[in-house]
Simulated assay, not measured.
Amino acid sequence: MASTKDTMRRRAERIRRAVKKVANGRPRLSVHRSSKHIYAQIIDDSVGRTLASASSLDAKLKGDLKTGADVEAAAAVGKLVAERAKEAGVSDVVFDRGSFIYHGRVKAVAEGAREGGLNF
């Protein structure tokens, strides 16, 4: 029987494979959440480079947030990564939720990025 770690890894690979198939050259907005923080980065898979990133650990956000593990922090991270993506010249991305369900904090990152001006 597969462990939880193996199951999550396989699920993330399956989602990433599907995302790359529909990307059409657009970079992907990858989200990772832990029990204490949330991280987002925009990755150009054609060259394997991170174009923009943000997390609840950023000095710009850390003072304003009550905790890095709630929906408000996730929305703030989404807005910040969208702002940094605009500075890098990125406006269209594909959303990569990894092995996480599109719900709660992951959904808040996506909505915050859309409010910040990213299209996906």
Rank of each mutant, 00 (worst) to 15 (best):
F95L: 11
S3E: 12
N24R: 15
K60E: 13
I43Q: 01
R17E: 15
P27I: 07
E13A: 15
M1N: 13
R114T: 10
G63M: 11
G104Y: 07
S46K: 09
K5C: 09
S34K: 07
F95K: 04
L29Q: 04
S34G: 08
A40W: 00
R17D: 14
G63T: 12
L118V: 09
F95P: 02
T7L: 14
S99T: 00
A88G: 09
L80S: 00
E83L: 05
E13L: 15
G98D: 02
L51I: 09
D44V: 03
R28T: 10
G78V: 03
Y39D: 00
D45I: 05
V90M: 06
R84K: 12
A54E: 01
D44N: 11
L61R: 03
A88W: 10
L65I: 11
A54T: 07
S99G: 12
G104Q: 05
R33S: 07
N24Q: 15
A85C: 07
E87G: 07
K60S: 15
A108N: 03
A40F: 01
E13Q: 15
R33I: 08
S34E: 06
N119C: 06
K62A: 10
K62G: 02
V77I: 07
E83F: 01
I42Q: 00
A113H: 05
K79S: 04
I15V: 15
D58I: 08
L57H: 01
A110W: 05
V93K: 02
L51P: 02
M1Y: 14
F95D: 03
E13N: 14
M8V: 13
S30F: 03
K60F: 05
R16C: 11
V106N: 01
A52V: 05
E13S: 12
T4Y: 15
G63Q: 11
H103Q: 12
A73Y: 06
L118R: 05
A88L: 10
V81L: 05
